[in-house]
Design a binder for these strands. Sequence first.
DNA 1: CTGTTTCGGGACATCAATGTTCCATTTCTA
DNA 2: TAGAAATGGAACATTGATGTCCCGAAACAG
Lengths: 191, 191
Amino acid sequence: MGSSSVESGTRGRTRRAILSAAAEVLARDRAATLADIARAAEIGRSTLHRYFPDRDVLLRAAVADAHLVIRQAVQDAAVDEGTPSEAVRRLATALVGTGDRLLFLYGDPRSLGEFDPGEDPDSVDRMVTGLIKRGQAEGVFDPTAAVEWLRDILWALVYAGCESARRGVLPRPGVADAVVRVLENGIRGQS
Amino acid sequence: MGSSSVESGTRGRTRRAILSAAAEVLARDRAATLADIARAAEIGRSTLHRYFPDRDVLLRAAVADAHLVIRQAVQDAAVDEGTPSEAVRRLATALVGTGDRLLFLYGDPRSLGEFDPGEDPDSVDRMVTGLIKRGQAEGVFDPTAAVEWLRDILWALVYAGCESARRGVLPRPGVADAVVRVLENGIRGQS
DNA sequence: CTGTTTCGGGACATCAATGTTCCATTTCTA
DNA sequence: TAGAAATGGAACATTGATGTCCCGAAACAG
C-alpha cells in the first residue's frame, strides 16, 4: 500500500486535528492531560494513543509540527528581500499568524536545545538572526546590541502580541502592526 | 508563645528557603516535582510537607510570595516620582532584580485572575498602569496605544531580559538598561 | 452493497507523584 | 548542658495519569 508519506486522507486529517489540538491546549496549560487533548481534538483517548503511542511521542511530534509550521511561515516571509523594516513587518505578520503553535513552542522547554539529532540545525533561527544582522549592518537596527538579544526581543514581542490578542487586549488584525511599531519605535509617543 | 506572625527564626528561614527554591525550580519547569523543590531547597521532602501540607498550598504560597516580592520592588521604584522615563528605568531595574520570582509568576497561569479573594486587588497592576497612563498623558509614551498593551510589552521585555540574562545572552548588570533602551527606542540604530 | 478501516469507550494493569506517619538524629535555645 | 524544636529519611497507602487490550459501531472504499 501507500508509502509512509501517503496518509489515507482520514488518517491525515485526524493526525492534523490532534497536533493542532495539542498545540492549542498545551499552549494554555503545559500540564494538560492526554484526555484534555483528546477532548479538544474531539476524538477518543484510545484513538489518540493509536496515533501517538505515548505522551513523549506526542510531545515530540507536536514540537516538530509547530516548528514546521513556523519555519514555513518564516520562509514565506521571504526575509532576505526588501528593506529590513519591510522584512521584519512581513516576519511579524507571518509569526503572529501561527498563533497557538508559537505560544506552545515558545513556552516549551523542549524547544530549546533538544531537537532531534539529524534534524535541521534550526534554519528558523538562522533566517531570523540573518535578518537581524542585515538590519544591523545597514544601521537600521542597533548595531551595538547582541544579535541574540535582538532576536529574543523579537520573539518576546510576537509572543506578547499573540497572548494579548488571545485575551482580547489587541484586535486580531493589527497585532502585527502593534508589534512592529514597538520594534521600530519603542513605546514612545511620536515626539 | 509567638503570635502567628512570629516565626521561630529557624522556621522563617526554612520557609523562605522553600519559597525561594520553589520559584527557582518552577520558573524553569512548571511540572517540577515536590521532590525536585525539596532538593533545591536542600531539605527533606517530609520537611517540605511539614511547611506546606500539599502541592496546592505550596503553589498558592509561592505565588503570593512572588507577588509580595514584586509588589515591594515596584513600591521601592517610587513610580510616581520623576519623569516617566526615569520611573520606567527604576521600575525595570527593580523588576529585573526580582529574578526567578518574576519568571515564575509571569509564567504561571494561576497568576492571572486567580488571586485569593479578599486580597489586594492587584496594586502592582494599578501602579504600573498608572505610570503608563501618566507617560501617555505627558506624551512620552504613545497615547494612541491601549494601556494594557503597553503594560504587556513592559512585562514581556522585562521577562525576556531575565531569561536572556539567565542564559548568558545578556550580562547580568545592564539587563535593565537593555530593556529600557528597547522600550524607549525600539531596536533601531541611533538613526 | 460488502468487506475493510477507523473509531469510541470501557475494563484493566502500571507507574510515578503525592500525602501520611513514625522515629532516630541533629540543631536550636534557655 | 538539658529540654524542646526541627529535621531527614524510610515505609506505606492513595491517587490520578498513562498505556494496553478488546469489541461493537460507524465511516469509508471498492
